[in-house]
Every structure is written in structure tokens, then in C-alpha cells.
Write a protein that binds this DNA or RNA. Sequence first.
DNA 1: GTAGGGGTTCCACCAACGGGAAGGTCAAGA
DNA 2: TCTTGACCTTCCCGTTGGTGGAACCCCTAC
Lengths: 130, 130
Amino acid sequence: MNIGEIATRSGLPAKTIRYYEEIGLIKPLRDTNGYRAFRQQDLHKLTFLGRARALGFSIEDCRNLLALYEDQNRSSADVKSIARDHLAKIEQKIADLVDMQSTLTHLISACAGDNRPDCPILNSLDVQSL
Amino acid sequence: MNIGEIATRSGLPAKTIRYYEEIGLIKPLRDTNGYRAFRQQDLHKLTFLGRARALGFSIEDCRNLLALYEDQNRSSADVKSIARDHLAKIEQKIADLVDMQSTLTHLISACAGDNRPDCPILNSLDVQSL
DNA sequence: GTAGGGGTTCCACCAACGGGAAGGTCAAGA
DNA sequence: TCTTGACCTTCCCGTTGGTGGAACCCCTAC
């Protein structure tokens, strides 16, 4: 498989696949003409990576998950631990965003949004509002 | 005011303040020795920026908000529009994260987390699971 | 032979800073 | 007066996870 084909099959852009090779996540073979030659296992890995990234796992998380994925003697506890750490980060982000959402929603509803210069949103950002 | 003092007062790191000058958000004066000389209005702007950033507004949003903040003839509709766009982005991010949270929570609860190699989390990332 | 649609490398860029080096400045104390 | 230490300056590199583009090679079809 050339990079174009595996890009289509895995759903990842060719640029991303080259980048994943560069950082050592995959190690495709090379044809005599210098083209990357992907095997079925590379497609598996890339699909795996695409899904893990879609779940928000960092590249380093993915590296660890991939190592576990390939380790027949892994324990599921190791995987669960990474997933739990990641879940905690996600929940923290959600909490932060919900805070912002709440504040913004209040400010927006308080703002007339007309042609007048008075604006509760700017007022609240101004030092004077303290 | 030197940068150390305004950093303390605004709550922003000195590095961040220098960066904000570099990208043109603030324009402090200079003393003869080359030190930045901040005025009260710079403190106002930096405080404003700190709060807007804490609400997740991008630097470009901040630039626009700051221009409106300084424009006595602004209309509150312009501010409200920026805030609404930003709120929409936040809500999209929350939705994405909640999706991830939901999937991860299911996977984690399905995973025994013991010493055995079988792991529903990895299985779900594997291409085989389709 | 040439046109096109692959592929390759390398370099630069994005957000929003943070770390650290190398050096100038200032105020206080011995 | 000298020195110490805290402060300031600029400059450059690193971060995360790629994306865009330039310049160039390769392969197939017409």
C-alpha cells in the first residue's frame, strides 16, 4: 500500500501519517523507489491511532496505548489507568468550559445588543467593575 | 510601573506581558534605561485581557474586544456578537468532550482492570471490533 | 515526449506562551 | 567604592499536533 491508499483506508491525511512515522508511532517499510510501503498491521495501527485521537488521547497516551496494544502480556489495569487519567482531564476541561459557558450566558443575556455603547460584557471585563 | 510590579498587580506573568506587547495588544512607554514604563491604562488593559482570556476568548477576540473597549462610539451589538460566537464554540467543545467522556466512562466500566490481558478498551480501539 | 497524478524531503507556520542564556541596570550594604 | 543580588532587556528554542507549500522524483497513459 502506498501512502495515498492507506490515507483513504485509515481516514487520516497523508501528512498526518508521515508525521506519525516521524515521531516513531509507525514504521512502514520502503520500496526501492523510496515510497513508503504499508502493511496490514500499519493500517491496524493507524486506525487505532485515529480512534484514540478522536477520543482525545494525547500522542504520548497513544504511544503507551499502542505499546500495550502490541503487548500480548499486558494487563488491562495498565490500560484502564491511562484511560482513567485521561477521563479525569476531560472532566476537568468540561468543568472549566461549563464555568465559562455559565458566565458568558449571563453576560450575553444582560447585554442589550443594540446600537448604544453601554455594554455589560465590557463592563464586567473592565477593572472598574470590581 | 516596571514590568514586575504590573505583573503582580495584573496577575499576569511578565513573559505574557512582553508577549502581549510584541503582538501589539499593549504599547507601554520606555524609560531612558530601556525599561518598560507602564501607565494606569496599561494596567486596565492587562486586567481586561486577563479576564477575557480566562473566559477563553482567543487573542484575536481579545484584540477586537479591546478595540471596542476603547471605542466610545461602539455599539453593544458588536460585543455581543463576538461573545455569542465564542459561546457557540465553547458549547461545541463541551459537546465533543461530553461525547468522549461518555464513551470513555463506558469503556472503563467494562474493563476489569486486573492482570489479565483481555481489555475492552483496547478491543474497542482495534479495527477488529468493527 | 509530455502531461498528470502520484510520491519524497525540508522548511515554515499556527496558538499562546514558558524556559533559559547572556548581558545591562539599579539600590543597598560593607 | 565595590560588590551583591534583584530586577530588567533581548534573543532563541521548545511546547502540541499537525498543516501548507516549495522543489523535486517517479510512474503511467496517451
